[in-house]
């Protein structure tokens, strides 16, 4: 078993090397993340202008949301859609498929490598800058530990959802449209742009019933001590006596358990359609 896992470490290391190959690009990305945080901070300051609370979220909580969002953003680097799309069009996917390895696990190892590098060298530095210059509310070691677990689960969920969606590239033959769907979903359904409590009630009910909110909104909410609305599943678990933070982590785990068969099923259906056109 360990030997089987070790084989995928090569792809994890390759992704790390790829991310670090161009230093100017790397430092530029770090600067860009800092600038994006600054711009978001200014925008939300203007939205809150003179108000202490909007949609049940206090101004300083919103700033915490932004800073933690930058950290989560650093950990959620996918690229599976582009990898699969480009591999399919260029024919390079053939090289991966002839390896005696599981292709989904190979993609997972690649994504994990990129995510690890970007989290350590982009997410964490930008988060620390945010902590120093903007400030965050800290809710104790228990919430932080739960946040770290939920961050790992968020990455797994992000990968499973992106991988499932990436199978569409085998039907559309290029990745541009599928990548656009993914960007749309990540931007609006995960809470990465606007915290879910800002949405009208009907839309909020739909978003809480989908797995996407577990990618961004759930880890951030856990970091904030579960202060914000958590959705019907977490409320149900709370009714059974589970604390809100533990309930949110359990809800993520539940989604992972449900999405693993979906992702592997999607791969089983789509992989026979692969036709190497050249390469």
């Amino acid at each position: 078993m360990i030997r089987r896992i070790t084989r995928y470490r090569v792809f994890l290391r390759l992704a790390v090397q790829d991310a670090l190959a161009f230093r100017a690009q790397f430092w530029g990305t770090l600067g860009l993340s800092g600038l994006s945080l600054l711009l978001s901070y200014c925008l939300w300051q203007a939205i809150y202008a003179g108000r202490t609370e909007l949609a049940g979220i206090r101004a300083h909580e919103m700033m915490t949301y932004l800073v933690v969002s930058a950290l989560v953003n650093g950990a959620l680097i996918g690229g599976t859609i582009g990898y699969l799309g480009q591999g399919f069009v260029s024919g390079s996917i053939g090289g991966d498929l002839i390896k005696p390895l599981s292709f989904p696990l190979l993609c997972f190892a690649r994504s994990a490598g990129s995510a690890g590098v970007y989290l350590l060298l982009r997410g964490i530095p930008v988060f620390l800058l945010g902590v120093i210059f903007i400030g965050v509310d800290w809710h104790g070691p228990a919430a932080t530990a739960a946040f770290l677990i939920s961050l790992v689960q968020a990455f797994v969920l992000y990968f499973l959802l992106e991988f499932t969606l990436a199978q569409l590239t085998l039907f559309t033959h290029t990745s541009a449209a599928v990548a656009q769907i993914w960007v749309l979903v990540v931007t609006f359904a995960t809470g990465s742009l606007i915290p879910l409590p800002f949405f009208p009630a009907a839309l909020r009910r739909v978003l809480f019933a989908l797995p996407f909110q577990s990618i961004f909104y759930t880890p951030i909410n856990i970091f904030m001590g579960g202060r914000m609305e958590a959705g019907p599943v977490v409320d149900l678990l709370a009714g059974l006596g589970l604390p809100p933070i533990a309930g949110a982590v359990a809800c993520q785990t539940l989604w992972i358990v449900l999405l693993i068969p979906l992702a592997s099923g999607a791969w089983r259906i789509s992989s026979p359609r692969i036709l190497i056109q050249r390469g």
């Binding site: 100017a24 690009q25 530029g28 990305t29 860009l32 600038l35």
Partner: peptide, 15 residues
């Protein structure tokens, strides 16, 4: 000069 520097493009799109 910098070969792979897509970050400027990303910067422009972010701005």
């Amino acid at each position: 000069w910098l070969v792979r520097f897509t970050v400027v493009h990303e910067l422009i799109m972010s701005l």
